[in-house]
Design a binder for these strands. Structure first.
Lengths: 221, 221
DNA sequence: CACTACTTTTGAACACGTTCAGAAAAAGGA
DNA sequence: TCCTTTTTCTGAACGTGTTCAAAAGTAGTG
């Protein structure tokens, strides 16, 4: 097969996804039916299911693509500063910016809290995406001026990732004008998070830090 | 109407709910259909919708009932100790114990992260249940030995409630045998939470505490 | 070409939650 | 009692996501 030329089947897949995303964007996730999508992609309803296991799976595929498209932007964000707060803010803002046009679409996925559902951000199916993302937080810490205490190093990236997920979830459903509340939340909570990390290096906080480490050890196992 | 005798309509409502909960319990939420429920309650499918707006609403009604049934147990839990950690543990354990037989059922509701959905724990519809519950955390703090710093008093109950929601969510999907992981999470995280509250009274933590207060102020507004 | 194996597409069918026009039953009112 | 109003119930119908047997298309082999 020649370079740059996709298999026909891949083209069809893309056509379905393009149709779906356009319609999701215009009319929302719920009110776009699989029949609509298939019609727009010029095929029978059932055909779409040959390429995607479910309607949700289309959103998941979009999320998959998002990850690879955001990667260079995340790299770039890390290059901009060596200050931990700025680095974290950079990572999170890349995601919010990227998803801004399809903010509502994420709501379709965010309902899947059940880690057994393949669409959950905590599921086995999304493990790769997740671990890949956590690695960015690891790097944000590693090359920054404030790395935090040694014994927390193992878990801090995952904790920060979870913090990020909280921010994003809030942002998805933030109904304030221009999502100003989310902006505030990000700025202020980042301040708190970084302060806490710095604080956690002080000798006074030894016991509590050890508790956190212990807790994370048992949970991950 | 004589005392102790329910209206006929209320009896019918109860009959539907009883049928539903039994079947949810046996076969799970998803695989129990409204047709099944109506059949078990000996009526046509549509009739169930005269009493409940939706299938989810049945679960919500169950949750409503749960609140009033748990109230005396929560009172009792607060009477047992004046130690903050014990008091918090008491409140949370009452809920886990109560919901234990229908743990999986809660999964049906927990998917509703969208605060616009009436079934979300953050929605307007569930505000009363929520505020009522937060009040218990307020009391847990008030009459305990460690009340935490003054400026946090306004927000600490809500923060603790959110902490509790996290624990419950984890517990719902905890697949470890006998939910041992949840037990561990509760014990260890409670330790951390209470330590943090105590720590937050120290002068060193003034700035960070003020940040938290400020953040909560803007979010609640 | 003919035959086979595989991939892709079709569209009817299924089960579901939900709606709704209207039937039946109950409750008042004269 | 008869008529009206209100409450309760019926079951067919709708629109949805999804499945599936079978048809159509494609590619390789002789």
């Amino acid at each position: 097969m020649p370079d740059g030329v996709k298999k026909k089947s891949e083209e069809t897949r893309d056509r379905i996804m393009k149709a779906a995303l356009e319609m999701f964007h215009d009319g929302g996730f719920d009110s776009t039916t699989m029949r609509d999508i298939a019609a727009r992609a010029e095929m029978a309803t059932g055909a779409a299911y040959y390429y995607f296991d479910s309607k949700d799976a289309i959103v998941l595929a979009f999320y998959d693509r998002a990850r690879s498209e955001m990667e260079p932007r995340l790299e770039q964000a890390l290059e901009k500063s060596r200050d931990l707060k700025e680095r974290l803010r950079g990572l999170i803002e890349v995601k919010l910016d990227y998803f801004a046009p399809s903010r509502k679409l994420l709501g379709a996925l965010s309902g899947h809290t059940n880690p057994d559902s393949p669409l959950s951000p905590f599921s086995e199916r999304t493990r790769e995406i997740r671990e890949h993302d956590i690695a960015f937080f690891e790097r944000a810490l590693l090359e920054s001026r404030t790395t935090g205490p040694k014994d927390l190093k193992k878990h801090l990236p995952r904790l920060l990732w979870m913090y990020q997920m909280g921010i994003i979830l809030f942002w998805i459903y933030d109904s304030s004008r221009g999502q100003t509340k989310s902006d505030l939340l990000l700025t202020k909570s980042l301040d708190i998070v970084v302060r806490l990390i710095k604080l956690s290096s002080l000798p006074l906080t030894g016991p509590i830090r050890r508790s956190v480490v212990q807790l994370m050890d048992t949970l991950v196992s």
